[in-house]
Nucleic acid binder design. Structure first.
Lengths: 341, 341
DNA sequence: GTGTAATTTGCAAACGTTTGCAATTTTCCT
DNA sequence: AGGAAAATTGCAAACGTTTGCAAATTACAC
């Protein structure tokens, strides 16, 4: 314990350790890397010394030499709706699972938030930095084209987001269109006839959810769904929702919110207006975040399996790192019926 | 545009670029680093070429040579309550602000979750990896002593957590004890006399909140506050809370929840039991997360300024990186009165 | 035009690992 | 004991940048 502290810091490099052990740096390197070509005796001595002096090989040097870093980049483009997202429960939960999963696979995670508008070069820069072996992009935001461009020349990239027919980058995500259909079907089954969609349809995932709902409305011969564009950041959203509700007063009886977060805010706004849910207006959310269980009344929503998503992202990325070509992974959403529709 | 693509990848190193520009690698390095000692003419040529070929210097090599990486490690020890935390809104929000703040200062963020029980060496390993210039520890969990040990020998570390008299590591955090006092005072002012504390007091921050509340109860001559140990993960918490409520039925009229998340769950549980809030039982939370505004009724809580916390963490860390000694930073909590107490 | 100072450049040695190759030692077989 | 094969080791050259120092160039003053 004591000499641990006194000697700590004196052995900084593999060469120091080699001198101590009376062998060459190469041997130390091999011993610490667990290669089979070093004698068990010497390996044990080296490991013992390493432990005693708290030695750890420098990852930068190792990365440089081996041309791989053991780090996966995770980048969150803050596109259309700058301020939001990272505080968004959904992305954060996904990030948490990603961290777990990458750790399990022996990778570290380098997190970067970027604002594409002010930094057109965000993706190339990250990739070209030499710091990461591969990259996971969380959310396509409004950067679909740029991601497509990069995908042509760079293999180890997987994106969380929406799958579009014929796209070239590998994506993992929920079938948003199907989810949208489920939501609309539920609203209609619950008795709603005049539907509205709450959310920003410039985000591609949300657009797909909207499209799914529209499919159903059209097939059922209902009036077109009214789009109520709304930002995701709680401050702006509250106001906007209040405005929408005032503007559409009496003209709608079912709301499909792009997100549970929006749905929860909507619920609050409806209560303030004295609108009964689900009696006067039915409401369906998306994601099935923890908050969905805690609203009053509990929220009917479309569930995304976040853990499965994270596993899928990492799994596909590792396969791509190994040189494999991989297809995109589209996960099935699941309707969770609670009490708002 | 076209030749951009065709040439991309041919220029991988500073030496390649030097050859193209007809200068030495050293000059290219200086030019790209924006040093003053290179001729404006040649600098421009080099920058132009670099842009044209999408060249970016390898960060690993640079880091190795300069002995600094431009990366700050952020580590979340999952101590007492393994599964939780990263999905915890509070930590996630803090992480988001940290990412912003570090980016603003030109640093990248390397995220690591560790389970100290199964990996006693978690902190030394991260620090010794050579991958990071400094480290921010989010939450002391039950690792106070280990952090203290490390602090003696390693400067660039700042910790989010609770400040204890005489501790040796630099910490940023809310004055939990004061926050606890505020909560208890509010409960009492609202008419409560028999208080309970909801949360796991083995977590040091929570213990301090509890202690603050106890101070007040004692000073006011009330009965001792009943501790209701509760895990943070929503699944377990719900059950446990239900159990606590059943067990203390009629014996308490004020609850101080260690966290807004717990408070929200508690509110749901109370409603299920048909207990009126705040009429039968008053409730105060902690954090002032977005959810506090959305519960029914909206939650009275003690606010932590998360953004200020993140700024403080980064600011202190940078000062320490510059060699400065820094004191800990204790932020004042703020009572936010809504409708549960 | 010469000498000196100020600017720019190039050279080459680091930074700490890993790894192909060759040299050495050990093992095993006859 | 002798020899070949197998197991260990050491050597030295990378990986791609940065930077102190010296060399070369330019600018300036007389």
């Amino acid at each position: 314990m004591n000499d641990d502290k006194s000697t700590r810091g004196s052995v900084r490099t593999i060469t120091d350790l080699a001198r101590l052990a009376g062998v060459s740096p190469g041997t130390v390197s091999r011993a610490l890397a667990g290669k089979s070509l070093v004698n068990t005796k010497t390996r044990e001595k080296i490991e013992e010394l390493a432990r005693e002096h708290g030695f750890r090989p420098n990852q930068m040097a190792s990365g440089l030499r081996r041309q791989k870093t053991g780090v996966i980049g995770v980048v969150i483009p803050l596109g259309h709706d700058t301020r939001q997202q990272i505080s968004d429960s959904f992305f954060m939960t996904l990030l948490g699972f990603l961290a777990d999963e990458l750790t399990r696979q022996g990778y570290d995670l380098m997190l970067r938030r970027v604002v594409p508008e002010s930094d057109a070069d965000w993706l190339d820069r990250f990739i070209g930095s030499g710091m990461i072996d591969g990259v996971i992009v969380i959310g396509q935001s409004d950067q679909f084209d740029r991601i497509e461009d990069v995908a042509d020349g760079y293999g180890p990239m997987v994106v969380w987001g929406n799958h579009t027919e014929g796209q070239r980058h590998c994506v993992v995500g929920t079938d948003n269109r199907l989810g949208g259909r489920m939501a609309a079907e539920r609203l209609i089954a619950a008795g709603a006839k005049r539907l509205a969609f709450l959310g920003d349809t410039t985000a591609i995932e949300f657009a797909a959810r909207f499209a799914g709902a529209r499919d159903v409305a059209q097939k059922m011969g209902l009036a077109p769904i009214i789009a109520l564009p709304t930002h995701l950041s709680p401050e702006r959203a509250s106001e906007e929702i209040a405005g929408h509700l005032a503007a559409t007063d009496g003209r709608i009886d079912g709301i499909f919110a792009a997100t549970d977060t929006l749905a929860a805010l909507c619920l609050t706004a409806l209560r303030e207006r004295g609108v009964a849910v689900p009696d006067d207006i039915k409401l369906v959310g998306f994601d099935d975040l923890p908050i969905a269980q805690q609203t009053v009344p509990p929220l009917t929503t479309v569930r995304q399996d976040i853990a499965a998503g994270a596993r899928g992202l990492v799994d596909l990325l590792l396969r791509r790192l190994a040189g494999e070509q991989t297809e995109s992974l589209v996960l099935p959403p699941q309707l969770v019926v609670r009490q708002t529709a």
